[in-house]
Simulated assay, not measured.
Amino acid sequence: MLARPPSAVAAIIDEQHHRSIALVRRVTATDAAALEQIVMLSHALGEQLQTSVLVRAGLRLSTELADRTPVHPYRDWITACRTLVDRAADDGDLHAGLDLDAVARFVIGAFTGIQQLSGLLTDRPDLPRRIDEMWGLLLPTLIADPDRRETVRGARWAPPIPVT
């Protein structure tokens, strides 16, 4: 049986995951097309990684735990991505015949690798550019209408400004 991470470590990972899933809820509540929401989420998560010590710590701990890494955050991310991929397919935004499970797993895996590499090489100031490069490579494979590629690639989420 695998040893569980210490409770303080698990609490940091859980809080990071809670913040990420809250971000998913906020972005998916927008009127943007599903494929645009996936791109928006990747950039919003990248911003969280650049600005939040807790988010960086949670991701760092989850990758450093090796065989004790909690898998539920990754499963939740893949599930959230798959939900959006399904919506994008229903909207006609994706090429027909794609393996939607594979798309969701690949997007999450690609983002995970991009953010980790950016963190290792530059401490993440280049992360927005790396995420944009990722989408530049992925969108031609995914998106059915070539005329929508740049619109989708340029999608960004701006949190609502609180009324005071």
Rank of each mutant, 00 (worst) to 15 (best):
D145W: 06
L84G: 04
V27Q: 04
Q37F: 03
A34T: 05
L49A: 00
A29V: 06
A96S: 15
H18I: 08
T141L: 13
A34M: 05
D91K: 02
R25I: 07
S20F: 13
R87D: 15
G136V: 04
Q48L: 11
Q48M: 14
T79I: 08
P128F: 01
L139A: 03
T51C: 03
R56H: 03
F106T: 12
R19D: 12
L98E: 01
E47C: 04
V24P: 00
V55Y: 05
E15M: 07
V27E: 10
H72S: 14
R4N: 12
I161Q: 13
R68S: 15
A144G: 01
D132T: 10
S20D: 11
P6D: 06
L100A: 05
R130P: 08
I13G: 05
D99S: 05
V39T: 01
G46Y: 11
S118K: 00
A57Y: 04
C81S: 12
R149F: 05
A144W: 02
Q16S: 15
E47W: 06
E64N: 13
T79W: 10
A96C: 07
L49R: 04
M1N: 06
L117Y: 08
D76N: 07
R19M: 13
L142M: 06
A32W: 01
V71G: 15
D101W: 00
W157L: 10
F106N: 10
L117Q: 12
D76F: 06
I108A: 13
L61K: 11
A3Q: 05
L120M: 08
C81R: 07
A144F: 01
T151A: 15
T141P: 01
I114H: 01
R60A: 12
I21T: 05
I13C: 09
L94Y: 03
A11M: 03
A10T: 08
G58H: 11
W135E: 03
P128A: 02
E150L: 11
Q50W: 03
R148E: 14
T151I: 14
R56E: 02
A11W: 05
L41N: 05
R153S: 07
L100H: 14
H95N: 09
G92H: 09
V55R: 00
L142Q: 08
A44Y: 10
R60Y: 10
T69R: 14
F106H: 08
L138V: 08
D101H: 07
T79Q: 10
L121Q: 00
A32M: 04
R4P: 03
I161E: 15
Q16F: 07
L121K: 02
G136W: 00
T51R: 09
D147R: 09
R26N: 11
T51S: 14
T141R: 08
R82I: 11
E150P: 11
R153G: 06
V152G: 08
V24M: 01
T141Q: 09
L98N: 05
R25F: 02
S7V: 12
D132M: 00
